[in-house]
Design a protein around this nucleic acid. Structure first.
Lengths: 331, 331
DNA sequence: TTTATTTTTGCATACGTATGCAAAAATATA
DNA sequence: TATATTTTTGCATACGTATGCAAAAATAAA
């Protein structure tokens, strides 16, 4: 069980005690400059590397952030992954990546996070059970729901202001003269889809404008198939608001297949502003999620809670902006 | 420093020793069924959870796989990420995700992997220094280069058979009657781009067919800009082989912008078979990477090396297949 | 029933580090 | 120079678990 070079070896070579070696590597600990230099020289000569497990065993803390993600193949989330990894790396944290195939994170994934006593958890597009939340709380592990929220507000969540966004989208489409619209939702139970619908519907009802909702699943194929259904019903609307961009791209491709001209016959608006939205084959009008600010707020909250756990909860909603492209406007 | 429920607490409640508790949780250890039941009942009642750090400190092993990724926003790699996470989760391993912005993994990232004494490392689209490789070797941490290889063959790498693929792509384009072609490369120094070029060029030279190479960077924008350059030079080829799909999509959009008809005037072939290649707006002919087999071979090698480290190296090349769509063939 | 063999268990210890506390060393003040 | 104060250091210990080994218990054989 004997491993490599230890703090004892370094201490011997540097002519100090093991606890002085430890103090050199422990931020904020008191150690003289002279001792520090001796230790670092010895450590370098021996190729010493602090043992992270021994440290975590003593401190009961890690420099690991658990990141739980479901829709990793939606181009919005790799961007999120990249930004979180980059931001936390600067702070000395590593990312334990958990992929989940379910709307709700599974118990064995929670167990993994607890077993490693991660410093914090981010769940990007899934939810979690009350039991799981309690487990994290009891272990004083701060949690952020990213781009999701759960009714009851016992969580810290960071989202785009979906309600305001969808109101503005509705108003924008009204202003372009549309009077017959549909909303294509994501997975029925997600907070994002519900709110995007609500804002949209509220404005349309205030203006006594006809609308209809179709349920889909946040995938390209789901968007495509919904248009197939709408076309087969012979009910082509003047405008379509789609709950996310990847689905909207499927909508556009299906409309093209049926020789339905965008935006002349049907206007299409998505949500996210993924990279592909700007591609000329789509040129999708969309709501840009304020991803930089969302990541920043998440990182700020987690680092504050890691430093001093309070368990406080809040729902943060950040405004994005409408990006108008050729799916709603002829340029 | 006192943490939660420990094996001692469980032992006391179950009326056995701490080492018997440990034996229940350690696979392969000898423990009677009666003792096992008593321990598990006590553990459940107390909500016991083995401390991963104490374990790793003793065993010097973890159940963490380091996954280093550069092009996380190329749709090929989120798919890879998802599959690795799923495959290793079944084996009880978690993924420590490392994003790198560089062609070569940086020292501080290697340090992270070493500090956590990961059980294995996968690097998907970057390389590493000889020093880094030596560090991993000295710590008996198995490494796989995924979709990359380094000349000299001192690594274990798993790739698509790029040479054979690009030969077949060249032959396919010849058979369609093209006699004037270009190759758009990825980042100049990557093994994948070099090999995809080599196979292509070899066949074209054997057949005395004109070709030209343009250097790009594996991004959509890179592909788009290369076409802008080619068009400004007034040298429209009959066929374009692009080193990866995301770049090929940019190529198609730029050709469309210039009213250049695909495949009538120019045929376009990509590489990867990402999800977007099948979208009707592109319908890209491409070489499908055998991702399932590549992931399987990687997982198999790592688990074998984790069980019994040998350090053996090999270059695995797996055949993919040509997927013909409308960018080369009118249907 | 006694003896031999196998299985199970507990004791004692180690893994590598951080940390409370008292002692030693360094610095400041009279 | 002596005293007071502050800074630095080493000692001893604990963190929670796995493990070598001898002892105890269980099982098999004579």
């Amino acid at each position: 069980m004997k491993q490599g070079i230890t703090a004892k070896d370094v201490a011997k070579l540097a002519g100090v005690s093991q606890s002085s070696v430890s103090r050199v590597y422990f931020e904020g600990a008191t150690v003289s400059q002279k001792t520090r230099e001796k230790v670092l020289a010895a450590a370098k000569e021996l190729g010493y590397r602090p043992n992270e497990f021994a440290r975590s065993l003593i401190t009961n803390r890690t420099k690991i952030i658990g990141l739980v993600m479901k829709g990793v193949q939606n181009p919005f989330y790799p961007q999120v992954l990249k930004q979180f990894t980059t931001a936390f790396k600067k702070l000395g944290y590593s990312i334990l990546f958990v992929y989940t195939n379910n709307d709700e994170i599974q118990k064995d994934d929670i167990d993994t996070l607890l077993n490693y006593n991660v410093a914090g958890v981010i769940i990007t597009d899934a939810t979690l059970s009350l039991q799981a939340n309690e487990d994290l709380f009891n272990n004083r592990i701060p949690l952020v729901l990213f781009n999701r929220k759960i009714v009851g507000n016992k969580f810290f969540s960071v989202c785009c202001n979906n309600l305001e966004a969808s109101k503005q989208i509705a108003q924008y489409l009204l202003k372009t003269g549309c009077s017959n619209m549909i909303y294509i939702s994501g997975n029925e139970n997600t907070s994002t889809s519900k709110e995007r619908e609500k804002g949209f519907v509220t404005v349309l009802e205030e203006n006594k404008v006809k609308y209809k909702k179709y349920i889909s699943d946040y995938t390209y194929e789901g968007g495509y198939e919904t248009i197939e259904e709408i076309v087969s019903q012979g009910k082509i609307p003047e405008a379509i608001f789609v709950a996310n961009d990847i689905m909207a791209l499927g909508v556009i491709d299906a409309l093209k297949k049926h020789q339905i001209s965008v935006p002349d016959e049907v206007k299409v608006v998505g949500f996210d502003n993924i990279e592909m939205s700007a591609w000329p084959s789509y040129s999708l009008t969309t709501w840009e999620q304020p991803i930089n600010e969302m990541v920043k707020r998440t990182v700020d909250y987690l680092t504050a809670e890691i430093n001093e756990y309070s368990g406080f909860t809040k729902n943060i909603e950040i405004d994005g902006r409408l990006i108008v492209r050729n799916s709603t406007y002829n340029s």
